[in-house]
């Protein structure tokens, strides 16, 4: 829910010496992304994507670095990053399982698949397994309703999921 406010006022910010948005990534974004837009702030979403792709999630320090890089206020980057569900402001598992919960998938039996995954991984939606391998999420329509029920595992879409093939899907992940 995009409009839930986060307790950022009293939050402790962990920092580290080494930047998340390093010179190499900066150079790449400067060369390939920035020239596309009439102002730097428009590169906020692509830059957040790029940093998250490299780091795995978006630490607060990284948001500050992105703000400095784009000439935005840190609060502006924070404002954007907290709005979108794909941005992780806390660490996630190596594999994120996003199971669609919208109407076509529910009609086609996504609940039994969710129960199966929950039992197999012993976690609830929103949680990560203790070994850090899997994070389980409910997600709204993935735009693949004709092959419901479906889910994404990281960037890969799995269609026509069944209680049987979910075993194979999960077991095949290293």
């Amino acid at each position: 829910m995009a409009w839930i406010t986060k307790n950022s006022g009293t939050m402790q910010i962990e920092t580290r010496e080494e930047p998340y948005l390093d010179d190499e990534l900066k150079a790449e974004i400067e060369a390939n992304i920035i020239p596309r837009y009439p102002d730097r702030r428009a590169a906020t979403l692509p830059t957040l994507h790029a940093v998250q792709h490299k780091v795995g999630w978006l630490p607060t320090q990284a948001l500050k670095e992105i703000a400095d890089f784009l000439g935005s206020a840190p609060s502006e980057v924070m404002d954007t990053a907290t709005f979108y569900e794909e941005y992780w402001l806390k660490p996630k598992g190596k594999y994120v399982i996003w199971l669609c919960q919208s109407i076509s998938c529910e009609l086609m039996g996504r609940d039994t698949i969710m129960s199966k995954i929950k039992a197999k991984l012993n976690i609830e939606p929103g949680e990560t397994t203790e070994d850090g391998k899997f994070t389980l999420m409910n997600v709204e329509c993935l735009g693949s309703c004709g092959t419901a029920p479906c889910g994404l595992v990281n960037e890969k879409l799995h269609e026509n999921m069944t209680v049987d093939n979910i075993d194979q899907i999960l077991d095949s992940l290293e």
Binding site: A2, D39, L45, L70, T80, Y84, E85, E86
Partner: peptide, 19 residues
Amino acid sequence: AGAYICGEETALLNSLEGK
């Protein structure tokens, strides 16, 4: 980055602008 509302045309514009 995962927000249905960005399909609404003016929300889309804000999202394009990095907001």
